[in-house]
Amino acid sequence: MSQPLLQVDNVTKIFRYGFLGFKFRAVDNVNIVLEDKPMIFSIAGESGSGKTTLAKLILRIYKPEYGRILFKGRNIYEIDENSFRKNIQPIMQDPYAAFNPMQKPIRYLRETAKNIVGIKNDEELEELIAKTLSYVGLNYSDVVNKYPHEFSGGELQRLSIARALLPKPKLIVADEPVSMLDASLRINIINLFKKIKDELGVSFIYITHDLATAYYMSDKIAIMFRGTIVESGPSKKVLSKPLHPYTQTLLESLPQLDPKKKEYWYRQRIKFSAYIEEEEFIAKGCKYIHRCPYAMSKCKTEPPYFKIDDVEVRCWLYEKK
């Protein structure tokens, strides 16, 4: 069996709340395996579920307290800076904040090409940049003399994507890449991701709270809640037949694009407890216990992963009798 592209192995990240406050696990014992074939892996969950922290751990921005992250079988902390950046590239959420307003965005592309790709020849460098820009749907001559405020959000996000593509990475970690964009531009960026995956063979980790786009573009999905993965598997399966009560709630609360479902949506009430986030983070056992309609006494101990076909779900409801 071939080496997986990325293996997140029992990774835990602990944050301290306040100066002397209690510790909590923003990412708690998370396991993810990305096989070595181009795919889009979505990590979905609400705000505060630890999905961005997980992305930052994979990008080496945070160091995990426990566990390890392997890229092609090697611990990411043993890979030297340059080849790490060549292989794993980020795309951040806010395209307006990604570029220094005082500098032309083209400079970031040139620096990436020079320092990470290692091209010394100027002509070659400009040629690579022009080629990459036209691949993401931008025109080199339109970009070269502009400052960030002269671009729209969609164009800036395309620039970020072009920058990330320059080193020809194996993996792109995209943290909510379309949530700041206008609705009519979003789908184009998402289609661009699919095209990059199919044509250039780049894998994506796509972090999102938008389940509809996750369904549309991703091959696999992991649903996170308060630092743990509660359900993971092929995204079409997870999102059409959700097993975990939390996934079910997420899908039920998603507004449907069909006014005929209005009444049904309105009738489905959400049990939203007044429990604050911190209490859920430090809860022993299943973290969803305070909101779960099926909560039972067993839920006070942490459920293991139960495997049902190719979906893994972390809920006592699916214990084999």
């Binding site: 009519s184 289609n191 509809a212 549309y216 059409s240 694009l257």
Partner: peptide, 25 residues
């Protein structure tokens, strides 16, 4: 414009490729 706004949105349970609008406002 309304057509594009409504039809470009991906829906759960529907994998039909969707196209957005070109250009920007």
């Amino acid at each position: 414009y309304t057509q594009a706004l409504i039809n470009s949105l991906p829906r759960l349970g529907d994998e039909k490729p969707r196209r957005g609008l070109e250009g920007s406002p």
